[in-house]
Design a protein around this nucleic acid. Sequence first.
DNA 1: TGACTTATAGACTACTCGATACATAAGTTC
DNA 2: GAACTTATGTATCGAGTAGTCTATAAGTCA
Lengths: 206, 206
Amino acid sequence: MAKMGRPRTFDRQKAVVQAMHLFWEHGYEMTSLSQLKANIGGGISTPSFYAAFGSKEELFNEAVQCYLETYACVTDSLWDDEIPPRDAVELALRRSTKMQCESGHPKGCMVSLGTMSAPTPELTHVVEPLTASRSRTLQGFVRCVERAIAMGELSKKANARSIGIAFNSFLLGVSILARDGVEASDLDASITELMKLWDIEVCQPK
Amino acid sequence: MAKMGRPRTFDRQKAVVQAMHLFWEHGYEMTSLSQLKANIGGGISTPSFYAAFGSKEELFNEAVQCYLETYACVTDSLWDDEIPPRDAVELALRRSTKMQCESGHPKGCMVSLGTMSAPTPELTHVVEPLTASRSRTLQGFVRCVERAIAMGELSKKANARSIGIAFNSFLLGVSILARDGVEASDLDASITELMKLWDIEVCQPK
DNA sequence: TGACTTATAGACTACTCGATACATAAGTTC
DNA sequence: GAACTTATGTATCGAGTAGTCTATAAGTCA
């Protein structure tokens, strides 16, 4: 049975993607309803917007969900136990950096740059999924180091949390550098340097 | 000769510092005139604000200048040729991280977090001093690595720009981690790990 | 055909934004 | 004292914010 009532003049899923790009670029608060309406299916009216999405906040949540299910997957290797931990870390860094510098969408990572998106305490909950995702990624890096220690690849003396924070902090910084226009090749080369941090912790053969 | 006219009811320099803290926390756009007025000397009126500072943008510029001349000095070691380059890098990282986690002002670095402060192209110039400062800091890190190579401390094969980007990206990430509530001690420990990146590039004695 | 359902368009609400006009208050200088 | 200078308070501006009301258009179902 087909849907009843007057059909929508725009593609709802495409609209969520367009909204995601706007929120990604400008943050939650700085993306206005006018911008969103203007960029959805060649422009829609206010009631159409509210009928389709409920509110700005609900659309933001959908956009974040969409981001997490697509672009954010570049760091999935951090939780893949099939991949050797060193490769998992390097893959996450290289894939994420490459994604953040791609054309066709805003530079940087929506999750990282979302720190400033809701500067007032009342709006903290809006941006909570982003905070949670950052926390999860940090845990992912730490987890890989822990796995390497458990496997005997890294020394038992290695500080998993400190090393994990180092990799994670580097990756967060990439968002800002990508926004500032640093070339993807430069960032990729700096990952090669950063990975030496791993190699220096490797257990020396006796 | 004392100043003519009715005296101001608030301390202008203190007001700039208070404004700096607000801009630091919320960014340029998300800091409203109401907030600024309310937080200056127990509350001032609109005309008093404009008489004293000209406009929101001019006050922001003053606040940025104030930041650069005070808090931002934590990375000054990067341009101090009296300090051995490795120490200069480590000092900049540790001092900046410590400052970013201090209480008494917003967490993170105003310069780093200012990326998102002016999301529209028309406002890019407002935030230009912050962009310039980020670029300068990156150059500072690269410069230290170059100095170490010239001194023979680091291998001639070392890629100064890549290594500099790695240190700089880490430090940019610290702003986001500090906002997210990561402990200063954890960040400091991760600096210890990161500095191994330097040591691995050191010329091996033959 | 007519009842039902959903989306649309235009007008409008209450509020906040940054910024200004005008009259007045509070000082210094002569 | 009067003239001058600067800051202040009240009241307001036009624009933009998120969101709502009412009526109508455009479909499906019986």
